[in-house]
Each structure stands twice: as C-alpha cells, then as structure tokens.
Design a protein around this nucleic acid. Structure first.
Lengths: 189, 189
DNA sequence: GTCTATACGACGATAGAC
DNA sequence: GTCTATCGTCGTATAGAC
C-alpha cells in the first residue's frame, strides 16, 4: 500500500474548512479534491460513503474540537467567570472574529444526509448543554439555564449570519464580549 | 401572446418560498419549475438572466414585503411599545414561529450572484435601520441603537439556525417575545 | 407566453492500472 | 493508497414549434 499523502486528521480538517466556507452544495467533489490535495477517486477510497460521509465525519470532528478544545475550560478549576471568559476567547478564535462561519449553519443548508444532520444536532445539543451548565453554576434554575444557553448560541450564530450578509462583524464581537453577562446573568459572576 | 398562467407576483412569491426552504443551490431549475408551475424555458422567458436573476428578484421582493408589511408599524401613530409589539407579531407570522427560515441566511449560502447578494445586504441594512429608529425613540444614542438593532436581528437569525439544526423552536419564540426589551432597553418603553 | 426537445458542461460516483 | 479515465445523471441554459 502506498503511503498516505494526507493524514486522516489533515483530511477531515480541510474538509471542515471547506464546508464552513462554501456549505455542503458549494463543496463539489472537484473543489474538495483541490482543497485536500487528493483526487476524487482517492477521496472515495477514504470515504466509501461518498460526499455524505465526508460531511458526516467533518461534522463529527467539530463535536470533538468543540468539546475537547473550544469548550474545554468549562471543566477547569478556575472561577466561573474566568472559565466563561476563556471560552469566549476560544470562540473568538474559532470563528476568527466573525470571518469564519459555523458548520451548524453552512452544513444544514442542503442535504448532507442523515448522519451529518444528526451529528450537527448532537453538536448543537452538546454546546447548549455546556453553556447551560455554566448558567446553572451561576445560580439559574434548569429552565432558565437552558434558555440562556440557547440564546447565547443564537446570538453568536445570528451574528455570523449578519456578518456574512453585511460584512459587518461588530455584532459578532458584541456577542462574544457579552457572553458572560448573557450566560451568568446581568449581575456578573 | 398567450396569457400569463402565473402572475409576476405569484411567481416571485413561489420563488421566495422555495429559496427560503432549500437555499440557492438546493433550488434546482427542475424544482423551481415544479414549485412555480412553469416549464424551465418559460422561466427563462420571464427571467432572461437565469437563476441568478430569479434570486435577485426574490431577494428584492423581500425588501418590499419587509418594509411595506412586516416592519410597517414602525411608522404608525401608536405608542412606541405597541409598534414594537405589532412588529414582533408580524415577524412571528413571517417566520411561522421559527418553522420558516430567513432568505438572508438561506440565500447567502452558495453563489446567488452579485445582484442578489447586494439585495440581501440592502435588506439587512434596512431592517437594522428600522430597528435602530425604534431604539432611538426609546432614548438610546445612535451607536447604542444600532447595536441593539443588530443584536435583536442576530437573536432572531440565530434562533432560526438553532431551530433548523435541532428542531427546537423555543429560542425563536423567546427572541420574538423579548424583542421589545432588547430594542427599547430593560426599562421597557 | 408556454411548451417539447435538446445542447452541453459539471456533478457524484466507479473501474481498473500502478 | 493514489492515480487516470470514464460512466450515467442532473445541472443550467437554448432552440424552435405553437
């Protein structure tokens, strides 16, 4: 067997990056081949399930990156407010200040298949769950915590839409800067 | 000339509905023909510029509908808080409680052409402008008003993304119910 | 103005050599 | 494991009859 020109991790990362830029339908196999450096037939060797499997694995990798990196500070020993601030900084980096879009949005337009769709739903739920945990630590009851979590995520997702349409990223910056207040309540930590 | 089987208004309305459902790339000419009741060649007679012109006119019609109907209460004689409440009710209907998506999001994924893109940007700016006007009436300074307007729109757009991905529309309902507070400030009207 | 029929390229996906 | 070459389909868009 010939050596792999691209590692699995590199491959999925490049897939994720492309899907985030142009969406599912916009990422043609030709564009995927160009972005990954592999020919179409090589991609089918790696992903026998075709483009839908690529979307499924790309979305699965985002769950990993989110839980294991972006949202990781939730479980640290730092004070509540510091953990939220750390997550906010991670989110700002992950979305590059609003310049990079979210896979939840970009991949859910079109028909990426049931696997990718359920992965996206699971990723969103997990994100909500982490944010809700932080809100609960701030003293909110279960329902309020879930509401604050969803609203904080919606603020970010919506700001990314506004950014994509108008080119104005200031709403995204405000969504990040206001994360702690939105999650923990106006009173602060 | 044979009589028109579908009026211009019906045609653009059906186009808009389809684009909102499946996005630009998802709306193939076959699907457009099925949704409008016209054959592909008839569509090219109405829209010589092809699919991109269809997207451009669909997006242009949304500006009209938003300014002339959904956001119309902004200019009424009613008290400020009542006008915002009326707009919130209109938005709830326009998005059907979060079940119908926003053209700003769905049409900006893919390549709908420069005309549609600039129409979407103009629609977003107009929406922001109307919301900012309401915030200013509540006493906010220019910068604060614009920020509140963008954030209120982002809350709605983001809630629609969350709705699409998770199927949970509660975030949308909260975005609508909280519109007045978000726009006019926590103190109310 | 709408239709049937068609051109032609791009799409996702596969076959088979190396 | 990767490649070149190709398949069949569906994409957008056109031609021309009525």
């Amino acid at each position: 067997m010939a050596p792999r020109l691209v590692t699995d991790i590199q491959l999925v990362d490049r897939l994720t990056g492309l899907f985030r830029q142009v969406g599912y339908d916009g990422a043609s196999l030709g564009a995927i081949a160009a972005a990954t450096g592999l020919q179409k037939s090589s991609l089918y060797h790696r992903f026998p399930g075709g483009k839908q499997q690529m979307a499924a694995e790309a979305s699965a990798s985002v769950i990993q990156e989110f839980a294991g990196s972006v949202l990781a500070p939730v479980g640290s020993e730092a004070p509540l407010h510091e953990r939220v601030t750390a997550i906010a900084a991670n989110l700002d980096g992950f979305y590059d200040g609003g310049a990079r879009y979210c896979l939840l949005d970009m991949l859910s337009v079109g028909d990426p298949g049931v696997d990718a769709a359920s992965n996206l739903a699971a990723a969103a739920m997990a994100w909500i769950s982490v944010f809700a945990t932080l809100a609960r630590e701030a003293g909110a009851d279960e329902a309020t915590a879930r509401a604050r979590a969803q609203d904080a995520i919606a603020a970010i997702e919506g700001a990314l839409v506004v950014s994509r349409v108008t080119g104005d990223r200031s709403a995204f910056t405000r969504a990040i800067d206001g994360l702690a207040e939105r999650l923990l309540g106006a009173s602060g930590s």
